[in-house]
Computed example of a mutant assay.
Amino acid sequence: MTEQSISDYLNQLQSENGLPGGGSATALVGAMSAALVHMVSEIQKDKKSLKDSRQEVLTILEEAEEVREHFEKLKDQDAIAFEPVSKAYKLPKDTEEQKSSRQRAIEEGLHGAVQPPLSMMKTTLKLIELYERLARIPIKGSIVNDIAVGVLFARTTLQSSHLNVLVNTNFMKDEQTKKELEGLGNTYLVQGEEKADQLYADSKYYLMHKKWPSMDVRGVQ
């Protein structure tokens, strides 16, 4: 699936078979956000005004490529992650032994299905960190708009991945496992949303005022 064209992927996404679905599409949005980090870094790396930050820009560029590749893998992994759950629900449940075996298979399938979205959330935190580092350099000019768009993409990826975590844990009977997975997802969400919101506010401020906000504007004492 990774090598197919965008058009082919969208045709597959809109088909009635449901594979790929929202989780896979979420990973694609994350990959696009990482590609924007890479693009901004690529354009900025040789600018004389940023010569003192060149090594940092090159490092960000390299890490953005790794993040994009990871999202592309997750796009494919998520598309097939729910298959074991679907198969488990079709298992017989005529006897108590069959019911028990079926429930174990469902729980194992759900635990596997929740891993790609959790990984997406963790990877998105890394992605948001890259945007934070770009903003600290700081990047100047209209290209800051691409930073703002990329941050919005990253925030969407984080929130959508969180929904994809919850849709799987919601069917779990093992309350302890459910609590642990949802707690991890909630932690990732809170950490990432706060940083993404601040980055978007800062980049929007730059686009409106042609300068990055000072600490007092951000409300930092």
Rank of each mutant, 00 (worst) to 15 (best):
L91G: 04
E194C: 02
E56G: 09
E62H: 15
I139D: 00
V190A: 14
A105I: 08
E83M: 14
I137W: 00
K126A: 01
K73A: 06
V165N: 09
N168Q: 09
G150F: 01
L127R: 02
E129A: 14
R104N: 14
E66G: 14
V165T: 12
Q191G: 05
Q159N: 15
A105R: 03
K173M: 12
Q176H: 15
T95H: 12
Q115Y: 04
Q98N: 10
E193A: 02
I128H: 06
G109D: 06
S101V: 04
V190H: 10
K179Q: 12
N164A: 12
L152M: 09
G185A: 15
T123V: 01
A88W: 10
H70D: 01
L118V: 09
E62F: 05
E69I: 05
L91T: 10
A154C: 07
L134P: 02
F171Q: 03
E96F: 11
A88E: 10
E132D: 11
R54Y: 00
G192V: 02
S100T: 14
I143E: 00
S101Y: 07
A105N: 09
T169E: 00
L166Y: 13
Q98F: 09
Y131I: 10
L199I: 11
A148R: 12
L199D: 04
T123F: 00
L130S: 09
L189K: 11
V57S: 07
D78A: 09
F82T: 07
Y200G: 05
K87Y: 07
L127S: 02
S100W: 07
E63V: 12
E108H: 11
K87E: 15
Q198E: 11
F82S: 09
E129I: 08
Q176E: 15
E66N: 14
V190S: 13
E83G: 08
E129P: 07
E72I: 14
F71M: 05
A79P: 06
T157P: 02
S53D: 11
H111P: 00
T124A: 04
P92K: 13
K178P: 01
H70G: 00
L163K: 09
H162N: 13
L125H: 08
A135E: 06
Q115F: 02
Q98H: 10
T95E: 10
V57Q: 06
L125K: 12
S101L: 10
A113R: 02
P117T: 03
S119T: 13
S100P: 03
T169A: 09
S160Q: 08
M172K: 07
S161E: 00
V144P: 01
